[in-house]
């Protein structure tokens, strides 16, 4: 059952006589790269607790920028808006993606077309989608007069479908198709087999998909920036707007809060995701 590599199974801890896998210098570069990946974010987090104004020279610990962010009505509103959009969009996208994933376990004509359609947003730069949606929604807005959050939610739901689809599909693929057959063999109707066997087994994948879609929606800048109406800032577009002016550590405080939220959600996502080991 282990797909452990024969070579990897060697006790790498104990020095073998000739370290076959080692390539000199690579490990050092690797460790530095990973450190560099985290250092700026770490600095940003530290800076968010900074008592000083703008300079990086340490002047003491303080939570004042968090207080400032919390007291800022624009920030609060943008945050609530982000949550609303992310929650609605990820819910819609996850349901749609789950249904499509279930359909794809069966072979049927048009399967590949649907697969391509679903993955289309992944394959193109966001700016293109943003521009396209701006044009479409502008005309709908002109025709109907509706200017609510619906546009943002719809746009986010669309690009969240492939994101939610990924873990749902992976989970579904790890489920033995024989199980549904066994259920049918034991007198379950197709719906009962789905409801009692497939759905419970899929649940972690669906939850993982929803979380990932939520995170991606929460972090989106470009599409939100183009689709939003005036006064419809989400947290990321608000931050982007603020960056034009002098950067205060308030942005760092907001960033840190968002990082914390994202990190927690991603940890849950990883716990729920199917492990790569089971490929049989």
């Amino acid at each position: 059952m282990t797909d452990e590599h024969p070579a990897a199974a060697l006790p790498t801890g104990k020095r073998s006589i000739f370290p076959v896998k080692t390539i000199p210098g690579l490990s050092a570069v690797a460790v530095i790269s990973i450190a560099v990946l985290y250092a700026p974010v770490f600095a940003l987090v530290v800076h968010s607790f900074h008592a000083g104004d703008s300079g990086a020279l340490w002047q003491g610990f303080s939570l004042k920028w968090y207080v400032a962010a919390l007291e800022n009505r624009e920030v609060r509103e943008a945050f609530m808006r982000s949550l609303t959009v992310a929650a609605s969009a990820s819910a819609i996208a996850t349901v749609a993606a789950t249904m499509a994933a279930v359909a794809r376990t069966r072979t049927f004509p048009g399967r590949t077309a649907i697969h391509l359609l679903i993955n289309q947003p992944v394959m193109m730069p966001e700016i293109i989608m943003a521009a396209a949606l701006l044009i479409v929604f502008a005309s709908i807005k002109a025709a109907t007069g509706y200017a609510g959050l619906g546009y943002l939610i719809l746009a986010h739901a669309a690009f969240c479908v492939p994101v939610a689809y990924l873990p749902v599909r992976a989970r579904l693929e790890s489920i033995d198709l024989n199980l549904e057959m066994a259920a049918a063999d034991l007198y379950a109707t197709p719906w009962q087999a789905f409801r009692r066997i497939t759905l419970p087994l899929m649940a972690p994948g669906i939850a993982a998909g929803a979380i990932l879609a939520f995170v991606i929606s929460l972090d989106d800048v470009i599409i939100s920036e183009f689709v939003k109406a005036a006064g419809q800032d989400t947290l990321p577009t608000y931050m982007l707007g603020q960056l034009r002016q002098t950067v205060t550590p308030e942005i760092n405080a907001i960033s840190t809060a968002l990082i914390a939220l994202t990190a927690i959600l991603l940890c849950i996502f990883f716990v729920l995701s199917p492990t790569r080991e089971r490929k049989s």
């Binding site: 940003l44 990086a56 995170v215 991606i216 972090d219 800048v221 960056l243 760092n252 960033s255 994202t262």
Partner: peptide
């Protein structure tokens, strides 16, 4: 998977 904007802000900092 985490925010591109925030990681860019980190470099900005």
């Amino acid at each position: 998977w985490s925010s591109l904007l925030i990681r860019t802000i980190a470099i900005l900092e």
